[in-house]
Amino acid sequence: MNGLDDLKLELEEWKRQGRYRLPAVWESGSGPWMVLNGRKVLQMASNNYLGLTDHPRLKQAAIAAIERYGVGSGSVRTIAGTLDIHEQLELELADFKGTEAALVFQSGFTTNQGVFGTLLQENDVVISDALNHASIIDGIRLTKAARRIYPHKEMNALEDALRGASGYRRRFIVTDGVFSMDGDIAPLPEIVALAERYDAIVCVDDAHASGVLGRCGKGTTDHFSLHGRVHIQIGTLSKAVGVVGGYAAGSQALKEYLIHKARPFLFSTSQTPAVAASCLEAIRVLRESPELGERMWAQADRFRAELQADGFDTGDSETPIIPIVVGDAADTMRFSAQLLEEGVFAPGIVYPTVAADKGRVRLIVTAAHSDEDLAFARAALREVGRAFGLI
């Protein structure tokens, strides 16, 4: 047996537990209906909240950027890889988020690595919600800072952690704006109030809130009218924005510090011209098309209410992320497979992504889903839900 043979054993164990799966391979672009194995199925798992991945203005912006700049930047940002469209994107993104400045990274994941790895040192403490995204967790792990984890949205526990952190140089609170597996919203006003009482920094990750919460999708800070009271807003450009990338928005000093110190920024080739241009166009579309968000919310709220009326457990969902909790991992994966047989793609999510007894399929309702699409999904869910005894 060589040093990697044990991987096969672990894979077999995952299969036995019902946790094994490989990515679906799609034969069409992102949209409400997509082609999988030669068959059209209703896509209910995409983060393409506003349908921007196929927006004609974004596609034209990408094509024009390729014609002008080529397909790549050829370098990292600090050498020869900063194009004028990168700077324009950051200017308009900062204005959109209501901050002094913004810095774009290659992904939301690398943004969290860059921000936490740069700002947190061994005499600092970071206080994190228990259900924060894996990129936050991994970003924190790269630091030597002390760590405190408070139970999900438990403000008394957060205050206890802050009260016990007075001896640290920097107290750093981080939370998702919208939690990706449950679809609930962080109690940001309470978090900010505690941070101000205990002289702490607030960082909110808006991966699932950018384009979703706030006016024209400006995010959690705008949703709660907390501009000027949240120090760092992190987000992705790959979900509601429809393209790919990440950003950190805050002060000009923060931006310049990250330019000098954030390793993912320093050692990764910059966004391709087409990506930067289409992200820039997406921000402009968000500003000009509030009806996209309004439709997404109307569809999501109605669909969630219908599923709850049918008897499904949708957890604490209050956004277009709507989980249907099944429980057991193997049952969850079978439930997902049966939904696919009925023509609805909603992959199972099981441990370790969620707790062992909280397996679920996660549905995401987008602005592109029609009334007929959601009626089709509801009928399939009711059929399979009855067969599994969930309703």
Rank of each mutant, 00 (worst) to 15 (best):
D95Q: 15
A102E: 01
I85E: 13
N112E: 07
D54V: 13
V76K: 15
E92Q: 11
I127V: 03
I136H: 00
A80N: 15
Q88L: 15
Q113C: 04
L93Q: 04
D95R: 10
F116R: 02
A61Y: 05
D124W: 00
E90R: 02
I137C: 01
V71P: 05
A64Q: 14
N132C: 08
G74N: 08
H55M: 00
F109T: 14
V71G: 10
V104D: 07
R68F: 04
F105P: 01
K97I: 05
Q113H: 10
Q88S: 14
L103E: 09
G74L: 09
I136C: 00
I66D: 12
D95P: 00
L83P: 07
T53E: 09
R141K: 14
R57T: 05
A62D: 11
Q121S: 14
A134M: 09
A101H: 03
V125P: 03
I137L: 08
Y49K: 05
V126T: 08
G81P: 01
N132A: 09
I66V: 15
V126C: 06
Q88C: 10
E90D: 12
D95A: 15
A94Y: 04
D54Q: 14
G108L: 00
G117Y: 10
Q121R: 11
D138F: 09
E87R: 13
N123R: 13
V104Y: 08
G74T: 08
A130R: 03
L91E: 15
F105C: 05
H133F: 02
E90F: 07
L50H: 05
E87V: 12
H133K: 01
A134S: 11
S107I: 10
L89Q: 05
L119C: 08
L131K: 09
A80V: 14
E67I: 07
A130L: 09
K59V: 13
K59R: 12
A62C: 14
I79N: 13
A64H: 09
T110C: 04
H133D: 12
V71T: 12
L58G: 06
L58T: 04
G70Y: 01
V115D: 01
S135I: 04
R68I: 02
G51N: 06
E122G: 06
D95G: 12
L83V: 05
A101V: 00
L50V: 02
S135K: 04
E100K: 01
V126L: 04
V115T: 02
A62L: 12
L50R: 01
I137Q: 02
F105D: 03
L50I: 02
R77F: 13
K97E: 04
H86M: 08
R141Y: 02
D95V: 10
I63T: 14
A94S: 06
L50M: 07
L120S: 06
Q121E: 15
T82D: 08
A102Q: 00
T53D: 03
V115A: 02
L50K: 06
R77L: 12
H55V: 00
Q113Y: 09
L91C: 07
I137H: 03
S107A: 12
Q88V: 08
D124S: 11
L103N: 02
V126I: 11
A62M: 11
I140R: 00
K59W: 06
E100H: 03
L52G: 05
I66G: 10
D54N: 10
S135P: 00
I136V: 10
E87S: 14
F109L: 11
Y69C: 08
I66Y: 11
H55G: 00
D84T: 09
I140C: 00
Q88M: 14
V115F: 02
